[in-house]
Design a protein around this nucleic acid. Structure first.
Length: 256
DNA sequence: ATGGTCGCACCGCGA
């Protein structure tokens, strides 16, 4: 099973690229983030013609997540399912061939001094509570998405320049570690222990040609699933050419 | 070359 996570930064803007990506890689499961459209506007027919069912949790203008799958999906759940009244569509889950797949768009956090920063930390804490409430570490589970957090400085091309950012802040990394401590493995890092591979480059400041990248898109899995991972890659071609997303797809392959 | 981006929606916000 080949699982992809990709922040497409608008499905409408990335429609052609998304369809070409599916045709080129033929992944089994694709977790999408930042759809930036409502469910009714999702191009389900075109995605179906490419061979994929889609479940979506959209929102007008901002956020929005989806899971595409060539294999049947069941037990679809949208949102965190806690007692927080949160209008932001950031989480969707489905079961595919016995694997619980979650597509998550973790909050960016704006500036350290902003309300968005406290929302980010609270959201990450809610994510851990959501795992505790709904799953066991023994469950084959993949938590995929744009985490908006680097694991450590091996995920940062220029650590000194990003040291105080919301993507690298110690509190954000601690929140990520707390989620990981549920019992998750960073499946990409398993295959690239030295780091140095990025998934996101800011549109601004010529970040991509300068190589100023970070790895903030992750596929974390419970050991029952992580032990089956055989390869992990980033498709940097998706950050090139016409109308690229600022994120490149992260792909991890699991044996049957 | 000493700056420099997108997407959405229509003004400035979010990233």
């Amino acid at each position: 099973m080949k699982i992809v996570t990709w922040n497409v930064n608008s499905v409408k803007a990335r429609r052609e690229r998304l369809l070409a990506f599916l045709a080129r890689h033929q992944p089994d499961v694709v977790c999408l983030q930042e759809l930036k459209l409502e469910d009714a506007a999702f191009p389900s027919l075109e995605v179906k013609a490419a061979g994929y069912d889609a479940v979506t949790f959209g929102q007008k203008t901002y956020n929005g997540v989806a899971i595409l799958s060539r294999l049947p999906m069941s037990d679809v759940v949208r949102g965190m399912g806690d007692d927080v009244d949160d209008p932001q569509s950031r989480l969707i889950a489905a079961t595919i061939e016995g694997v619980r797949v979650i597509s998550a768009y973790m909050p960016n956090g704006g500036e350290i001094t902003s309300d968005k920063w406290s929302y980010k930390l609270a959201w990450l804490a809610r994510m851990r509570a959501h795992l505790d409430r709904n799953y066991k570490p023994e469950t084959p589970l993949a938590l995929c998405g744009d985490w908006n957090v680097t694991v450590d400085d091996k995920d940062v091309a220029k650590p000194a320049e990003w040291k105080d950012s919301v993507l690298c802040h110690p509190d954000a990394r601690a929140a990520l570690e707390h989620i990981r401590a549920f019992g998750l493995v960073d499946t990409f890092r398993t295959h690239h222990p030295d780091g140095g591979i990025w998934s996101w480059w800011d549109y601004r400041m010529l970040s991509f040609p300068k190589g100023d990248g970070l790895r903030i898109d992750h596929i974390f899995a419970t050991p029952a699933l992580a032990s089956r991972s055989t390869a992990a890659v980033v498709d940097r071609d998706e950050r090139k050419g016409k109308l690229p997303s600022d994120h490149a797809p992260v792909m991890v392959t699991f044996s049957d």
